[in-house]
Nucleic acid binder design. Structure first.
Length: 861
RNA sequence: GGGCGCGUAGCUCAGCGGGAGAGCUCUCGCCUUACAAGCGAGCGGUCGCAGGUUCGAUCCCUGCCGCGCCCA
């Protein structure tokens, strides 16, 4: 039976009880990964947690990694950061609810499946129950049905997820592997659909036919959060429009949209064009009459100061179209090619030869035509300008008018924006300044959250539409799936009152063809992980959760969208804390990413330095701070791990660890050492409480090295002897080891567990975090500090004489401030034996402590 | 262009009102029975620049320069 905590018991003999002769890191990872799995060391005890007050539970909303992606050391670092907190909270005696999820729906998985198997989804094909993917992907992607495609997605993500889990176990993430969720699972789909229906019922979700940013490669709409500007070359084409009073020159980077032109626009204050306002001009080539209008967004210093408004070249066009109530003349289709028929009012010629061309080819042809007609003045002027891209896309976004689902997020409602900003202020951000990222994003929103995607592997909208007598869908009264039926797949499930025969026929029904964007599901990770749909009792206990760990690049997406969903459904923030990790960057300070080719594979690094060493390095990266990848640092972590093994061997090898207790610590230097350690414990604890694992490690580590180099050296010979004084040293060493192993346990789970197992029963990771109270009070930290200072002076004398540290000292005279004399005297025995000093005298004097050292004559060899 | 963060030893970073620090690197030593995958010692910085506040500024304020991230 696994209990959540057990009190440390420094006298109980361990299960193995044996200290190896030659401790080594080799094999520790395999050994303890297996042991932790069989003993379910990190399992969440649901019953115990529910029986205890909420404050005894610590719930973490783990980021579900994209299972189809690849991991690099940056992921290892940020997940380790979370694990440091989880392990600390567990050692504080809390029930740590630490699930793991896989984000396996959406575009990345589709792409991986396409490439891995050499297939593509064709929703018009029927399901083939016997389908087997080609052994090797062929030259051309094989079209398969949607259901076959989804099956391949599920098959491949299962494999990917297993590989991820193995890596996470190797890194020693202390997640509860009994609690794993997938964003494409039935539960996730049901949760996402149920939440969507709630949003819809409350008016928070809606569908609208509207201009939408559109990726022509993926043939899907994309959301504002997925946009990025990229600098791209372009050219201003100076083109003449025709009017009764002569030509009007505009400059455009997109001459191919000439047939889509609905107006010209200039700034209302622009005197050059004021006479034209209210007039009409004719487009070149097509001779379509368009009005000249005024609008404040027109930029007088850009180009000629007058621009054409098209359907739709950019977001300004959309604004103009909406605010000036202009007609539309769509020419760009969903595939990024010019549509077959010209828009109403645009003549067949010369449009016919543009139809079917890509925008690129259409532009070339239009430019030729303009040259021939004399409407292109001069040569195009090359420029570079920002162009909107889908962050995962490679071709510029177009704007097409489509019917899409949206969730209100404040982008069109200043009051809601304010409310959501206020929600952000309810969250404790780590580090605090990351709050600005959130607020900037919310305040800069300019549209609602577009959640529908024209893709296949995702959560479908649980919606059907009736078809009228002409077979046209009636969008005004959608048929919603009943909540009891969720999850549904409207493309194979049939709404109540219809049969499959009614699908797609006049008077029948059709499914909503879209799926939800992956963020629309992952924004529900607290609900999915905490059992909103499956375990209401648990959900009521752990939600709102304690911690959302994530990286800063997805504050605008994952963090914000999670806040939105929680705000709507529960009227609360989803977690009390958000801990934001920085990136691991390469030596040039560039973010590590696979696409840049600078990513370091974690397995290789883990193999060479060990998980503890990599975790140690991760713990040195403060929350929110980027840290450069530097292998030299890994070596330092590895050295610390080895040192812990060796000092553990020394302390326990004294053969006297059993039966020792704090009462036996009598010597002033020993009591002083433990007093110092008590303040280290207090400082480390305060740092961990503030999520400052870096500071906690720093103080623990600084103590540890001086413990090894000074204290252990000072008391070594006393510890080897017998009697009360020896027992005092042995008890101190044992106590200090126990405390330090626990201080290091979150960072170095493998070596601390190994050493712990030599003399303790149970896992160090289920032991209680150390407290100052378990150490004897009243010791004077100055005793070991001054003794170490004196010893250092002796060592320096030997070092400068190029002598071994084992060289004998004939006489050593310590001159110390009056107040320190007694301190040195208190450590006299240890100091003389550690320094191999034949005759030590201590005198009071001015200034800081000094030691006059007279080395003994080297003995004859 | 806006927001945020950062400029401290060759490198990575602590410190954030009264003594400029750590680790790594480097140099010189040491086989020392926990550890040579170790130990000891040492070298190394007008704390980005310029003003201001203060008895006193690496630390607070202002401006500038440089770097990074996010957003337009």
């Amino acid at each position: 039976m696994v209990t959540d905590t057990r009190a440390p018991d420094s006298t109980a003999p361990g299960p193995t009880g044996a200290v190896p002769d030659k401790p080594s890191l080799d094999g520790l990872e395999d050994k303890w990964v297996a042991r932790w799995a069989t003993e379910d060391t990190y399992g969440f005890d649901r019953a115990a947690a529910l029986a205890a007050p909420r404050g005894d539970t610590f719930a973490i909303d783990t980021p579900p990694p994209t299972a189809s992606g690849s991991l690099h050391v940056g992921h290892v670092f940020s997940y380790t950061h979370t694990d440091l907190v989880a392990r600390y909270q567990r050692m504080r005696g809390r029930h740590v609810f630490y699930p793991m999820g896989w984000d396996d729906n959406g575009l990345p998985t589709e792409r991986r499946v396409q490439n891995y198997y050499g297939v593509r989804c064709d929703p018009s094909l029927p399901y083939d129950p016997g389908f087997q993917p080609p052994a090797k992907p062929g030259k051309d992607q094989q079209p398969i049905s949607r259901r076959n495609f989804v099956e391949l997605c599920e098959r491949l993500t299962a494999v990917d997820e297993a590989a991820f889990e193995e890596l996470w176990r190797r890194v020693a993430l202390s997640v509860d592997w009994n609690n794993v969720y997938r964003t494409i699972s039935g539960t996730s789909r049901a949760t996402a659909q149920r939440m969507f229906l709630h949003n819809l019922a409350r008016g928070e979700a809606y569908a609208q036919e509207a201009p939408t940013l559109w990726d022509v490669t993926f043939r899907t709409a994309v959301a504002q959060a997925e946009l990025e500007d990229r600098e791209r070359p372009g050219a201003y084409h100076r083109i003449s429009f025709h009017s009764a009073n002569g030509p009007v020159f505009i400059e455009t980077t997109r001459p191919e949209l000439l047939p889509a032109c609905v107006a010209l626009v200039a700034h209302p204050d622009d005197e050059r064009y004021q006479p034209l306002f209210g007039q009409t001009v004719r487009t070149p080539l097509f001779e379509v009459e368009v009005p000249v209008v005024a609008h404040r967004l027109a930029e007088p210093d850009k180009g000629s100061g007058i621009a054409m408004i098209c359907t739709f070249g950019d977001l300004n066009d959309v604004t103009w179209w909406r605010e000036l109530q202009l007609p539309t003349r769509p020419v760009v289709g969903w595939d990024g090619r010019l549509v077959a028929e010209p828009p109403a009012g645009v003549p067949d010629q010369p449009y016919a030869e543009l139809a079917g061309k890509t925008v690129f080819s259409a532009q070339q042809r239009i430019v030729e035509l303009l040259r021939e007609s004399g409407d292109l003045q001069g040569d195009p002027t090359p420029i570079t300008h920002p162009v909107k891209f889908f962050e995962k896309g490679e071709r510029p976004l177009e704007i097409v008018t489509t019917r899409q689902w949206y969730i209100r997020n404040g982008g069109r409602d200043a009051d809601l924006r304010e409310v959501l900003v206020a929600r952000g202020r309810e969250i404790q951000w780590i580090p605090d300044h990351m709050r600005h990222r959130y607020e900037n994003w919310v305040e800069g929103l300019n549209g609602d959250w577009l959640i529908s995607r024209q893709r296949f592997f995702g959560v479908p909208f649980p919606v059907w539409y009736r078809l009228d007598a002409e077979g046209e869908p009636s969008y005004d009264d959608p048929i919603l799936a009943p909540e009891s039926a969720l999850p549904v797949d409207p493309s194979s499930d049939v709404p109540e009152g219809f049969t499959e025969a009614d699908r797609g026929v006049p008077g029948g029904f059709m499914a909503d063809p879209d799926v939800m964007d992956t963020w629309a599901t992952s924004s529900l990770s607290p609900q999915v992980a905490s059992g909103w749909d499956t375990d209401p009792e648990l959900f009521a206990h752990v939600f709102p959760m304690d911690l959302r760990p994530q990286a800063h690049d997805i504050i605008r997406t994952w963090l914000f969208s999670t806040v939105v969903r929680s705000h709507y459904e529960f009227g609360t923030v989803p977690w009390s804390h958000a801990a934001i990790s920085g990136f691991v960057v390469d030596p040039d300070r560039k973010k590590m990413s696979k696409s840049k080719g600078n990513a370091t594979t974690p397995l290789d690094v883990l193999d060479r330095y060990g998980s503890d060493a990599v975790r140690w390095r991760a713990a040195g990266a403060r929350p929110g701070a980027d840290s450069p990848f530097d292998e030299a640092q890994m070596k330092v972590g590895r050295r610390l791990a080895i040192k812990i093994l060796n000092v553990g061997k020394f302390v326990l090898g004294l053969g006297a660890s059993a039966g020792l207790s704090a009462e036996q610590v009598t010597e002033p230097i020993d009591r002083g050492l433990l007093a110092t350690l008590a303040s280290v414990v207090e400082e480390a604890t305060a740092a961990m409480e503030a999520y400052n694992y870096t500071r906690a490690l720093e103080v623990s580590e600084a103590f540890f090295w001086s413990f090894c180099d000074d204290y252990v050296e000072l008391v070594k010979s006393r510890a080897y002897s017998t009697g009360d004084a020896a027992r005092s040293a042995q008890a101190t060493l044992a106590l200090a080891l126990s405390v330090q192993l626990r201080l290091f346990a979150p960072v170095l789970p493998f070596v601390t567990e190994e050493v712990w197992s030599w003399w303790q029963s149970g896992s160090v990771h289920r032991a209680l975090w150390p407290t100052a109270a378990e150490l004897p009070a009243g010791g004077d930290p100055a005793v070991p500090a001054v003794a170490a200072e004196a010893l250092a002076a002796v060592r320096k004398a030997k070092s400068e004489a190029k002598q071994s540290m084992r060289a004998d000292v004939a006489t050593a005279t310590v001159t110390a401030p009056e107040a320190q004399v007694a301190l040195v005297e208190a450590a006299r025995v240890d100091l003389t034996s550690a320094g191999r000093i034949a005759s030590l005298s201590v005198v009071a004097g001015e200034g800081p402590l000094t030691v006059d050292v007279v080395l003994a004559e080297p003995s004859e060899a």
